[in-house]
Design a protein around this nucleic acid. Structure first.
Length: 270
DNA sequence: TTCCAGGCGTATC
DNA sequence: GATACGCATGGA
């Protein structure tokens, strides 16, 4: 990881890191595009991050201390993982090779487990712009991303201003189970995949897809492989005999390249 | 107007 | 265990 600090900013040497591909590809919902980059929040830390105007191989984290960078953002952006090596492995597969070539700047964000759980409960049977809107209104209502204990005492009527529809009671049930510690997300992190999925699915409104998204995006369980409507299409079209087992340990990351690829392809953005 | 969106709960077989 | 259907909301 190559970086330096100047004028209150962190200047990071770009490695397999495209801001739009990483922050606007459906894994996180609190980043919005600004001139030259993105502005957003992870849990309760705000950040503006842009491409450098001077150097194409530099990314700028604005108004960031070295302490915040090393202790929070470097982990959030998964800067300690070698994505070049990952993509070399994935490229043994023809479809994955095309997906990595199309958007090689995707990184898997290490998000807060509770925020990921809550976000992907909201994501079900929903579209990305509206997911962002609901989460934005949630944070506005609560003065930042709410702790589980804050939401645990709400009623669906309390959450009506979010316009979350039938998902409101799911959010509340998740908040109650997490805040009462009948579900510990850090314990879930350590469980074998099937047991972890089963535990998360104790929450009303959490099925296999939301459970896998929570594991992948919130707990960095790269063996979790969320299958949504888009990945279903990828599997049907390119992997009729199943997804290659050789990628089992990192198939969640592969999934993120494929998700972005197939969506752009079908929207004729390739 | 109808269809769809990073699905899930419920009923029914 | 598999399959069908309803569900809140809002943009296309």
């Amino acid at each position: 990881m190559d970086y330096y600090r100047k004028d209150g900013n962190i200047y990071l040497k770009r490695q397999d890191f495209d801001l739009a591909q990483t922050l606007d590809c459906g894994q996180a919902f609190r980043w919005s595009e600004i001139a030259g980059g993105y502005s957003g929040t992870a849990l309760n830390k705000p950040l503006t991050i842009t491409d450098s105007a001077e150097s194409a191989d530099t990314i700028v984290l604005h108004d960031t201390t070295e302490d915040d960078f090393l202790n929070f953002w470097a982990n959030y952006f998964d800067l300690y993982t070698d994505y070049s090596e990952l993509k070399r492995r994935f490229s043994e597969d023809e479809t994955l090779r095309a997906a990595c070539k199309f958007a090689g700047g995707i990184r898997l964000l290490r998000q807060n487990p509770w925020e990921a759980l809550c976000s992907f409960i909201i994501s079900q049977n929903n579209n990305i712009p509206r997911i962002k809107g609901i989460i934005s209104r949630l944070c506005e209502m609560c003065g930042g991303f709410p702790e589980p204990s804050l939401l645990a005492v709400k009623t669906p009527d309390d959450l009506a201003p979010l316009r979350a529809g039938f998902r409101a009671r799911y959010i509340i049930d998740a908040a109650q189970k997490v805040s009462s510690e009948s579900i510990s997300l850090e314990e879930v992190r350590k469980l074998p995949l099937a047991a972890a999925e089963k535990k998360l699915m104790e929450i009303v409104g959490v099925g296999i897809k939301v459970a896998d998204c929570t594991l992948l995006y919130g707990l960095w369980r790269t063996d979790a492989f969320p299958v949504d409507v888009w990945i279903k299409r990828v599997l049907a079209e390119y992997y009729p005999n199943g997804f290659p087992a050789e990628f089992d340990d990192t198939r969640g990351i592969a999934q993120q390249y494929l998700f972005h690829y197939i969506r752009c392809k079908e929207k004729n953005l390739l």
